[in-house]
Amino acid sequence: MSEDRTLEYLLERELRVVNSYVAAKRKTLTELLKEDYPHVLTLSGDIHMFRKSELMLAKEVVGEDAEKLMLPIYVELIPAQTITTGVVREELATKLISALLGIDHATPLYVYPVQLAELRRKIGTLIQYVVSPEVLKEVRDYEEI
């Protein structure tokens, strides 16, 4: 296989992996709480399960908004930053996260590495990291070379 084809093949495979763990259909917190084994299906066909204790914790925080809170929550990683910084863009998700982290509520909410670690410890199965769509765009800077 030529180097060209190898690179294309690797890129295609990586892009497939990047998108594969995104849920095919997200569910609301209320729906998940009713299930015996709360889970969603990913695009690759795998099962992503949620921990019941974490769902209960989320329910305590959001209260009546549980019907609107869609899970899993996507934490988008920003590639331009030198340190891993995540951003949450959904209103209800930011409400939950800011309450759990004890920070001011804002939309979009920027989450820094220390906070990401804490978030992972508290609601690790409820969040999923997504690579920012910016990264998936065509790199234009080769024109400069």
């Binding site: 763990y21 084994y37 099962i47 992503h48």
Partner: peptide, 9 residues
């Protein structure tokens, strides 16, 4: 109960 979760693929 044995389930699975997906982290970065």
């Amino acid at each position: 109960v044995v389930g699975s979760r997906i982290v970065a693929g």
